[in-house]
Amino acid sequence: MHQAPLTRPDTSDSTPKTGDPKTNNFKEKNMHKAGGIIGIIAGVFGVFAALATLFVGGIDSAFNADGASTVVGLGWGGVLFSFLTIVCGAVVFAKPKGAGIALVISSILGAVLGGSIVAIFMALSLIGGILAIIGAKGYAQAPTRAAS
């Protein structure tokens, strides 16, 4: 019994496929995903930084230190904008341009209103938002059917 040799199907056509790593489309198509992942990671670390800021503010207020209420306020601002960053980072996968813009805005506000430790992670989130906006032009959303 003789078996025919196994051969691969001919894929030598010169048209690049969608999402082909050799094309620029692949980079733009996945850039918004990278921006969303970076935004989520930065938001999670921002929450931990904001909780550390709240902890320091609580200790300061226990010892009646000057400006303790400001530190506590910065901690709550960091918590708020870090959670907002996590949400925007997750929404980037569905609506990259709008959520990328929201990610940039929440990063800037979180850096200003969240304290210095939170600002480090909001700078990382800002980079994620910029990647999401740049990658949005390579993202083609599937057309939706109108209800009939």
Rank of each mutant, 00 (worst) to 15 (best):
G129D: 02
G73F: 11
G58P: 05
V91D: 12
G89L: 09
M1I: 08
V44I: 15
T53C: 07
N30C: 01
V92L: 06
G39H: 01
T70A: 15
A142L: 12
G57N: 05
V104R: 01
F81C: 05
T15Q: 10
I117K: 08
S106I: 07
V91S: 11
V112F: 13
V104W: 00
A146I: 13
I86Q: 00
D66T: 15
A94R: 14
T18E: 09
V56F: 07
A140G: 14
F45Q: 04
V118E: 08
P9Y: 03
V44G: 04
V47D: 02
G73Q: 11
F45N: 05
F48D: 01
G46R: 01
L6M: 07
F48W: 05
S12H: 03
L131C: 13
A94F: 11
M31S: 06
F93P: 06
F121A: 04
G73S: 15
G75H: 10
P5V: 09
L103Q: 15
I120Y: 13
I130D: 01
A111M: 13
S125Y: 03
A119K: 02
G46V: 04
V44D: 02
L124Q: 08
S12D: 08
G67W: 12
G114Y: 06
T85S: 14
I37S: 11
K17T: 10
G129H: 01
W76Y: 15
A132Y: 00
A140I: 14
S82F: 12
L103M: 12
L51V: 14
S148G: 15
L113K: 05
T53A: 06
M31C: 03
S12A: 10
I133S: 00
G77I: 12
G128F: 08
D10N: 14
W76V: 15
G46T: 04
I38T: 04
V72W: 05
D13Q: 09
D10A: 06
I41P: 01
F48R: 01
L131Q: 10
G110M: 09
L54N: 11
P21W: 11
